[in-house]
């Protein structure tokens, strides 16, 4: 069990909490992971960083003490729609790595696949982008430039020239994190996701009233926090909407009310379009199944 895929482990841990097991800590409930049976030699050879983290940050020695653990958000499985050469539906825009969805991970990334993904698809996207750039017709007025200037102007007006406001970025971000953990965390339900969508709407409203104290043009990290929060709220809304529409459980998406996988209806990618200010539009695209057919997870 301890070496199972993370979605299964996370669910097992949450189940323990719900059944009243676990310890109470300053950051919520936690369990103990015990690696003491491995012995000092194996730990030092295979898990030196875990030992260092325990010693430096928690004040424990994992050779002698159990490790406090709990599930957390760790990776973004979806991403910008891209093919295996990193090309997105927008000509000239390429994506690779965690921000991209090339379909490698599906609904469940397996451990250690992410860094190889960066290397393999990063190289592919780089090559494809270079090819595109060298074959594209030369343009007189660079459209990318125009987009950049528009964006710069948007940021300027939305944040740097913004007056007033009474909402703190940090407070909204923290609430968003809490709401996402509760509503779209390890286990999900229809009610929980509906509440989440509503709360995220409220947070979006509050976001329009944020206060920007830093007007400096030099290394303004409050500005970047604001821009990031804007994007994160949008992504949260996207995750909540697609999770709500998916009446099944698949990989890390575990619906309490629909515990079974439904390949007939949902062997699909969810595509979300935020074209205009209105409600995001949800579409589906079939998953291309190659040599390996989806099977029941029986472990």
């Amino acid at each position: 069990m301890e070496l199972g895929p993370r979605d299964i482990i996370s669910r097992a841990m949450m189940t323990e909490f719900e059944e009243g097991h676990g310890f109470e800590g300053p950051h919520g409930k936690y369990l103990h992971l015990d690696v003491r049976h491995l012995g000092e030699d194996v730990i030092d050879r295979k898990l030196p960083f875990m030992r260092e983290l325990g010693r430096e940050f928690v004040g424990i020695d994992i050779v002698k003490d159990p490790i406090p653990v709990r599930p957390v958000q760790h990776y973004m499985m979806g991403g910008i729609d891209a093919d295996i050469s990193g090309a997105t539906p927008m000509a000239g825009l390429y994506a690779a790595g965690e921000c991209a969805n090339v379909g490698l991970n599906g609904a469940n990334r397996l451990g250690s696949n992410s860094l190889p993904e960066c290397l393999v698809f990063g190289a592919a996207a780089g090559r494809a982008a270079a090819e595109y750039a060298s074959s594209a017709k030369p343009v007189t007025a660079n459209p990318v430039d125009a987009i950049l200037w528009d964006e710069a102007r948007r940021v300027e007006v939305a944040y740097l020239e913004k007056k007033g406001g009474d909402e703190r970025i940090g407070a909204i971000r923290e609430e968003m994190q809490h709401e996402m953990d509760t509503g779209a965390g390890v286990f999900r339900t229809k009610e929980g996701l509906e509440t989440l969508v509503e709360r995220l709407g409220g947070l979006r409203q509050r976001f329009s009233r944020i206060k920007i104290e830093d007007s400096s043009r030099t290394f303004n990290t409050e500005l970047t926090s604001a821009i990031e929060l804007d994007f994160m709220l949008e992504l949260s809304q996207t995750i909540a909407l697609t999770a709500l529409a998916r009446d099944e459980s698949r990989g890390a998406h575990a619906r309490r009310d629909f515990p079974e996988r439904n390949d007939e209806k949902y062997l699909k990618h969810s595509l979300v379009f935020h074209r205009d200010a209105g409600k995001p539009r949800l579409e589906y695209r079939d998953v291309r199944v190659g040599n390996f057919k989806p099977q029941a997870r029986t472990y």
């Binding site: 200037w149 710069a152 102007r153 300027e156 043009r217 030099t218 290394f219």
Partner: peptide
């Protein structure tokens, strides 16, 4: 962007 933004940071 304004002129300040383009000036090299001191």
């Amino acid at each position: 962007m304004t002129n300040e933004a383009q000036a090299a940071p001191r």
